[in-house]
Nucleic acid binder design. Structure first.
Lengths: 215, 215
DNA sequence: CGCTCCACTGAACACCCGTTTAGCGTACTG
DNA sequence: CAGTACGCTAAACGGGTGTTCAGTGGAGCG
């Protein structure tokens, strides 16, 4: 085969360049721009990955594998997942992965569903530990609560993400994450410590009606 | 001028068709597809709006005006804004407006910021009424709490939105909103009624450190 | 009537995209 | 040393895009 090491092949270089471009410019980044970044021709990308969709799939697979290898690092205390992302994005090379995941979440699709489901599963586990430790109160539906908290954390993060469609400066990501997590820390802590509603009449009413419909 | 009434002119017809198309296919819908829907040539759109960006601007302005006219209907009890959207989307013609707003929120940009800020302002007002009525507990930072709750509600709504980039069936929107709001109702009510955290040690720690840094 | 104005069209332009194809050069292989 | 397989490139293809432009036809007006 080639004389060089199995990694840092042109194929891997293209994939890494693609993840970086997709993270910076969005998932609509052109094959030609990726080719220029990788220092190859556009044709070579199609030669290796078959099509643009094949390249996207390869990126998805690689990112998913990277997440699996450094498991459970992405989920965290629900109030401050952004703080962890800030640290993660500072690690060499990981900023591109974080940016790519954000773009995927933004765009939706199959990978998004899998990623979110994975985070929900992690949240279930984390919340369960809290309940057993006595720091988190139990829920009537642990799965639904984990899903809700994950959606809240991820959704508001995406909604506040600076770049709608325009390029993201990956160097600024960690600082942005830190500022965002600090900004939401007080209201989040307050919301999770002191009940928003002063009495349980609304919850009781719902539980009463639900009981009547599904006895 | 023209013989027909000032409304239902070709220009207005193009704008309405554009809002509908943008809502269904996303904000990247082509000028030609909109022209076909409106029954005019692509050139006429450019003639009336100057450019594709001009058409987008006209749509933004029209949607924003429509929201201003039917004010405060979009914001609601934080746990169930989707239920109101479901009702709103059933109204004749309003489904396209709701879909267009969702696309804008998805894509980010200037209109998004203005829309979210408006909803936050409404949330401040609504929460204030609850505090005065005694149903909602006061906050240390009312503005930050309103922002957080709005981000949570909107963000998780967008994250759960079925269409990543593919066309939305506007007829299915009301049903989807209703199902979504019902799905999150129990965990939301629970979260807002019974504290997630069993004690206030985390909040106290934050308040203590904040007090020390900004005495 | 002739004139002008204007909504409006259809074809063309220039550009970007993903993809195809023909071919080049080199490093293995028999 | 020929043969061949393969990484790789450059150019072109076909289709979609926003936009331009010359021109048409009808309504209002002096």
């Amino acid at each position: 085969m080639r004389s060089v090491q199995p990694d840092q092949t042109a194929k891997a270089r293209i994939r890494d360049a693609a993840i970086l471009r997709f993270a910076q410019d969005g998932l609509e980044a052109s094959v030609r721009s990726i080719a220029a970044d990788a220092g190859v021709s556009a044709g070579l990308i199609l030669h290796h990955f078959g099509s643009r969709a094949g390249l996207r799939q390869a990126c998805d697979d690689h990112v998913q594998a990277a997440i699996r290898d450094s498991k459970s690092v992405v989920m965290a205390p629900v109030g401050a997942p952004a703080a962890l992302l800030a640290q993660l994005a500072q690690l060499e090379g990981y900023a591109a992965l974080v940016g790519y995941v954000l773009r995927c979440l933004q765009a939706g699709g199959e990978l998004t569903t899998r990623l979110v489901d994975g985070m929900v599963a992690d949240a279930v586990e984390y919340l369960d530990q809290g309940v057993e430790a006595g720091t988190i109160s139990p829920s009537r539906d642990e799965a639904a609560r984990a899903r809700l908290l994950t959606d809240f954390a991820l959704g508001s993060l995406l909604l506040n993400l600076p770049a709608g469609r325009e390029p993201i400066d990956l160097d600024e990501l960690p600082g942005w994450f830190a500022a965002y997590s600090e900004r939401i820390l007080l209201p989040t802590l307050e919301l999770f410590t002191e009940p928003l509603l002063t009495d349980s009449s609304l919850l009781d009413a719902y539980l009463g009606s639900a009981e009547r419909t599904t006895p």
